[in-house]
Nucleic acid binder design. Sequence first.
RNA 1: GGUCCAGUGGUGGAACUGGUAUACACAAGAGACUUAAAAUCUCUCGCCGCAAGGCAUGUGGGUUCGACUCCCGCCUGGACCACCA
Length: 999
Amino acid sequence: MAKYNHKSIEKKWRKYWDKEKIYQTKEDKSKPKYYVLDMFPYPSGAGLHVGHPKGYIATDAIARMKMMQGYNVLHPMGWDAFGLPAENYAIANKMHPAEATKNNIKTFKKQLELLGFTYDWYREVNTTDPKYYKWTQWAFLQMFKRGLAYESYEPINWCPKCQTGLANEDLEDGKCERCGSEIERKPMRQWVLKITDYADRLLNDLDKLDKWPAPIKEMQRNWIGRSEGALIRFPVIARSEATKQSYGNEDIASSSPTARSRNDNLEVFTTRPDTLFGATYMVIAPENSLIENCKLEIENLEEVNEYVERSKKKSDLERTDLAKEKTGVELKGVKVVNPANGEELPIFVADYVLTGYGTGAIMAVPAHDERDFEFSKKYGIPIREVVAPLIVNEKGEDAFKKDAPIIERDAVVCVVKHWSEDKYLGIRWLKNDWQGFVIGGIEAGEDTSVAGIREITEETGYKNVEYIKPLGSIVHSKFFQALKKQNRFAHFVPLLFKLKDGEMDNIAEEEKNLHEVMWLSPEEVGKFANREDMRIIWKRVFENECYAENGVSINSDFLNELSTVEAKEKMIQWLEEKKIGQRKVQYKLRDWVFSRQRYWGEPIPLVHCEKCGVVPVPEKDLPLELPKVKHYEPTGTGESSLANIEKWVNTKCPVCGGPAKRETNTMPQWAGSCWYYLRYIDPNNDKALVDKEREKYWSPVDFYVGGAEHATRHLIYARFWHKFLFDIGAVNYDEPFTRLQNVGLILAEDGRKMSKRWGNVINPDAVVEDFGADAMRVYEVFMGPFDQPCAWSTQGLVGAKRFLEKVWALKEKALQNAILTPTQSGERSPRAQILGDSSITPQNDNEKITTLLHQTIKKVTDDIENMRFNTAISQLMILVNEMTKEDQLLLTPYSLLLKLLSPFAPHIAEEIWAELGNKESIFLSDWPAYDAELAKDAEIILAVQVNGKLRDILTVSADISEEEAKQTALASEKIQKWLEGNQPKKIIYVKGKLISIVV
RNA sequence: GGUCCAGUGGUGGAACUGGUAUACACAAGAGACUUAAAAUCUCUCGCCGCAAGGCAUGUGGGUUCGACUCCCGCCUGGACCACCA
């Protein structure tokens, strides 16, 4: 028998498939469609490494199975070729980006072709092809016409090395995602897409995407970052030089004659309008215009300006470094009035407030916000509690029980300090589960400190107790009291005490036995008093934590006693009534900075006319082609190199015909990938982005496979564009991708990422050469769960190759056992006949193989559908091992095995299939269906447990009844031994699995 | 710091809805074939124990006849977000 020669086989079938065009997708609307899509690659100069094709192998397997299942399959491929890396690569290699891109695509395509994918290359798209980007420009113009693209002069992220502005999404830890340079904030003119108009829909429609991985949806939710709250306007007042005062000086009322009211309001966004009464100062970002507006009134303007300058010089990285201490400067001479209570509040400028979010200013409530708390402690600003904690124990033994009654209690919680050591009193009640501080009920009319002293003495015997101070507000707590089987709604009054000495009264014997008293170091207390309510009280002893959760309003006038949710609502209504604020939904998502100051991108099709302003290039003139130039290096001035090409820049205004200049910014790399999946449907249409009828048939994408790194960029941008195209009637559905699957990274053998830098890159070409495309494909999906990262192992690859060799070796066995025709004894009959002819009854039908085969059909089909390729391959290995062990093998089961293997190892499957006498490609044959009856085992194995431990294993007929099974189990010698003559209390029978005997 | 995910042999990993833990593969060891090597084939392979049996899914508890799986706490690792008011 000829040896398995992957090289010749793979070459032969690639050629055949190409010639026969078996993967060319036809517009056959009688068949159900299946659109399976890969995230198209960025053709870099480095070529592919073995990690890149992993996703493509998966979609290819799915595409092949779906084809065989009778679907009309669309499985296209293309190139995302515009953008910075291509340009940088071209500069480094002294080439034109167009040329470099062309070469890179050629390399990529060649590499991909070696792996035998089902791509329909007649539908190849390339984002840098003018015929393609004509429609990218067209879509941009539609946005422009509808006001979704606008010019902005806000400072943006500028990468000094790449010499271009970047979107927020393009940053990693405040650094340029591409080159790692620290980003500067630079004000410059740019085009921005109003993605925030779609924020709500992008967020809400995530709920419809039930076949997307939950973590990706979560990341998008997080990125969009919706929060509900209120805008509140604080009137700004300024004082004359003579009355310069700082905050907290009570004798200056807002009615003071020296106070000059200004027309300014300081507007802030807050998610906690319920804490307005707790605001003790305001903070503005260094970029806030209030400083400019009030420069005459600010008495320490020099100091303020200095601070602002210092902040501007800081990189984003420094500014957002959480480890650093917060800094700020008070704006002396200017204050705001709290509209809720008329109090005057100082204003600080501090760079812990960000400029692009909300209004770039906040009301600071130190008692209930970590950052404000930290800042106010540093600058000695008063802290006012306006929310009493409400702890609802939801987990574990303390959680409220549904059926128990709710009992309310007022109680004191006494934190008691030792008279000489740094220790605190802990108490453990022996009868119930309580451990913590001394706690006791407050009697009617009793002063809380008196109640505390009484309880301490009663429970511990210590006589000389000194009351120090209250520990903040009441702490409400809902928990389950296990001993009394009650739900408790407790209102704890936390108090701090100190013992003067260790003198004790004798306490009743009875009381002594109830609890244990111990002295604990501060570290020990933290662990000892571990319930959330006690933890909060304990932290207050050191005043180093604030309460930022929901609770009950206090010290807040008309909000008092309302829950946080109710208080927020009431405050918003009040603000709206008084016209000093309103309800507001705020997003973290910012509008998409859509221009880049580089050459290699789609030109933005706009013209600047002195008379007419910004005018769109007429649609009939699209595409607006990128001029072919020799020099395209960035200018570094914030203009793209296009600005230097006078011939191109100077044009006529399409409206008035007068002189005009073209927009010289180009689109970002992400533009082309926003809609490429639509173009595959109709790649050559020059009348529309996509034909709507065709789109109706093929859309949405049924299965989209790609890396998780695109969660917050490509996948948000594409959804945004798609929704926009839906809104203007260009497409039929409002979400582009029905099902999404992430590919786990393939790491190098050393466990690191594959990278030129580490010299650990494995080239697929070499793998294909040495082991074959089929072995590589099988190995890559067998490595482990598809979405998990996994290190490459050449040894593992060897295993995959061995498996294919085993399949190959079975061919001879199957052919030997082919039924011989009577007339040509000793010769094989025409094999095609054998396969198709059901009248020939197998002479040695092997029940074991048949059962296993049908189980395998089921498992492989399900596993491919659910992306569990590793277990599909494992099941095929089991089948092949079994077939190898048997003396005889019929053609039919072998043919079915080949079909099951073909999505993973198409070349070898096709080769053997042909050798068996089939005239047509295996991929034009039907996918096997399994027979549930045949997949059933004749005999099953029952596990028998005694008291939960496995004691015997029985092999019984599959149709055994429960009674029979129990009798057989009890009759077993081993079981009898373990029963030791005892009568079983209970026998549990799980059909087809086990019998559990309880003695 | 927050959120989410994960932790199973020497290694990658399997285990359906709570029901025989370690499938499949790699590595390792022994043997066969060979003048020899490679390749191939056969066997062994979680730990302790001669065995009976006991112990093992990061760790400590809990629920259950029964837990890798469910619940609570802790430890470790990863991903994402990160001063978003």
